[in-house]
């Protein structure tokens, strides 16, 4: 299983792939960072990193599927899936190894963004590290949910492009759940709105970003990740049965 994890990591880092995406990610972040600074006014001169994360969510919807789109579709297209499926590894191990690898890439991207708070601190600014850590945790968990969704989409199709588009669609839906909830239709149906609200990742992300750590939020993110990873395992297994 470790071999597969290692190979997956190599496939990201031995190609320009991970670097291009990380660079784009940091570029987006630095735009948000510099615009936050230039917007500073008043006497307090504060800005929030989690706020930057939040505004980056929308860009992320396009970056994360690019990471996940090839995970299973490419294997199926090139026929290398056979190698994995006829090895002593089972589907559970294959999916977990691949997920951990892509999560590692994502973690690397996040760690690199620590550059911005470090620069802020180094240039004399005050950084609330505890609150920031909580924000990072929230962002990491939210990203894992998106990676799990992207991975699932990749297991549905043979074409990486379609996998990416499906992933973007699913993540857009996730982000806009709040918008749907507060739409006129659901305003008139408060009970339905409440049910939909339970699935919203944004609210939970916001509480993380405000430095509030709630066990219920952690459980929500973890169960969602498990749900989509589990679904991927089922989907890959199912493809075996319905192939032909």
């Amino acid at each position: 299983m470790f071999s597969l994890y290692k190979k997956e990591l190599q496939s990201y880092f031995y190609s320009p792939f991970a670097y291009v995406i990380t660079a784009l990610f940091l570029l987006i972040f630095s735009f948000a960072f510099s615009s936050s600074i230039s917007d500073l006014s008043g006497t307090q001169l504060t800005f929030s990193f989690p706020g930057m994360f939040y505004s980056n969510l929308y860009f992320f919807i396009f970056l994360i599927p690019a990471l996940t789109m090839r995970m299973f579709s490419e294997e199926r297209r090139t026929g290398t899936e056979i190698l994995l499926m006829t090895s002593p590894l089972n589907v559970f191990q294959i999916v977990i190894a691949k997920f951990l690898a892509v999560a590692t890439v994502y973690l690397t991207m996040l760690v690199l963004t620590l550059f911005f708070p470090i620069v802020t601190a180094a240039t004399g600014g005050g950084v609330m590290w505890s609150s920031l850590a909580c924000g990072y945790l929230g962002f990491f968990l939210w990203g894992l949910v998106c990676l799990a969704i992207g991975m699932l989409m990749s297991s549905f199709t043979e074409s990486p492009v379609i996998a990416a588009i499906l992933g973007e669609g699913a993540m857009l839906l996730l982000v806009f759940i709040d918008g749907i909830k507060s739409s006129g239709l659901f305003e008139s149906l408060p009970k339905a709105a409440k049910v939909i609200g339970q699935f919203s990742t944004n609210e939970r992300f916001v509480s993380f970003s405000e430095g509030i750590f709630k066990l219920s939020d952690l459980v929500f993110f973890l169960t969602t990740i498990i749900l989509f990873v589990g679904w991927t395992i089922i989907s890959v297994e199912k493809r075996r049965w319905s192939r032909g």
Binding site: S3, L4, K7, Q10
Partner: peptide, 16 residues
């Protein structure tokens, strides 16, 4: 895997 080198690929296959 087209993106791997021969030896690297065989090591990976041996690993799994």
């Amino acid at each position: 895997y087209p993106d791997m080198k021969v030896k690297e690929y065989l090591k990976f296959a041996a690993g799994i």
